[in-house]
Design a protein around this nucleic acid. Structure first.
Lengths: 68, 68
DNA sequence: TATAAATATCCCAATACGGTATATTTCGGG
DNA sequence: CCCGAAATATACCGTATTGGGATATTTATA
């Protein structure tokens, strides 16, 4: 999860992000420390919030040959 | 999850996929029916197996303006 | 250095997960 | 058509993982 870096790049706090996404601050913290994993719904919410792709968020080097 | 469609396009069975990924056949079935959600590790395994992006696998319309 | 903001951790009940086993559906050959 | 086999879905169950409230710790600022 590249969450922490992305969030900081946007200069927003865990708390604000959490509130915007109707989550708990500690949940965000746990995602960032890797103590917990987000479900797919949360993952997508986060990606959409920051306008980043899931591959980017999950640090997948975008595979050049893909989709189908 | 666009898993079922992708898998069928490649013409492989749930069982073969499951064995290739060291998973159980019913686990694949559950992902496809939506009864269960894969964790991030499984998700990435599957995307890599089929050489598709996570966004594609999760039916995210690749956001044109993205990644930072 | 005191206070506030930001982030991490503890404990817990609830849920979601995967495995084995089994049922159901799909499909090709006779 | 019908039967058997392959493919897929469902039931049950023990366990692991999750998120929330509360709180501790760290970081920043005045």
């Amino acid at each position: 999860m590249r969450l922490k870096a992305i969030r900081k790049a946007k200069g927003i706090s865990q708390l604000k992000l959490a509130m915007d996404l109707n989550m708990n601050q500690n949940t965000i913290s746990r995602y960032e420390t890797g103590e917990r994993e987000p479900g797919l719904a949360e993952l997508i919410q986060i990606a959409n919030y920051f306008h980043v792709s899931l591959d980017y968020l999950l640090e997948q080097t975008d595979n050049p040959e893909r989709n189908l």
